[in-house]
């Protein structure tokens, strides 16, 4: 239990660093850096905690992204930057790179290498399951980040 908690914190810290790195690539203001790191940490923590309890990775990502987006709205008011600046860099570490890699790898094997019919059917299964998981994670990231902002936009962040 304790071991997995330490592992969880280690992974979450690294997702904080990943968020900060992307923040610097996107040229975030210096005063937003600590917040971006903390939100990256929080997002990673929520996501990996939920996947630890064997929740589907798509739903886990969605909940983590919504969490980041909702928290970033009051933060934006407090630190005086628009909420986009806080919520875009922390969700970048959740991009489904592994599934994208698996999809490309299976497509390549399917087209160029594999000739055995049974293995080809397995590859079709791999292409579809990995590809659609990737697409749905991307959609859940995009929707999760835009939804809280769009719903609360009508009252504008300043007046909350």
């Amino acid at each position: 239990m304790q071991e997995s908690l330490i592992h969880l914190i280690e992974v979450a810290t690294w997702s904080g660093f990943a968020a900060l790195g992307f923040g610097i690539l996107f040229n975030i203001p210096r005063s937003a850096m600590v917040t971006v790191f903390c939100l990256g940490f929080l997002g990673g923590f929520i996501k990996f905690l939920l996947t630890e309890f064997e929740l589907n990775i798509i739903i886990a990502t969605f909940i983590a992204v919504i969490g980041i987006a909702i928290i970033s709205i009051p933060l934006a008011h407090k630190i005086h930057h628009p909420p986009v600046i806080f919520c875009v860099p922390p969700v970048i570490p959740m991009i489904p790179g592994y599934f994208a890699y698996k999809t490309v790898l299976s497509i390549m094997n399917f087209i160029f290498i594999e000739t055995n019919l049974d293995k080809r059917i397995e590859l079709i299964d791999a292409i579809y399951s990995n590809g659609f998981t990737m697409v749905f994670i991307l959609i859940s990231i995009a929707v999760g980040i835009s939804l809280p902002m769009l719903i609360l936009r009508k009252t504008t962040v300043k007046n909350i």
Binding site: E10, F17, L20, G21, G44, P93
Partner: peptide, 23 residues
């Protein structure tokens, strides 16, 4: 101005290393 090139390079590379830990 933007951040200096070397800082961006290092920061993104650390982010890449962080990703690797996540995976």
């Amino acid at each position: 101005k933007r951040y200096p090139r070397i800082i961006i390079l290092l920061a993104v590379s650390i982010a890449g290393a962080g990703f690797c830990n996540i995976f």
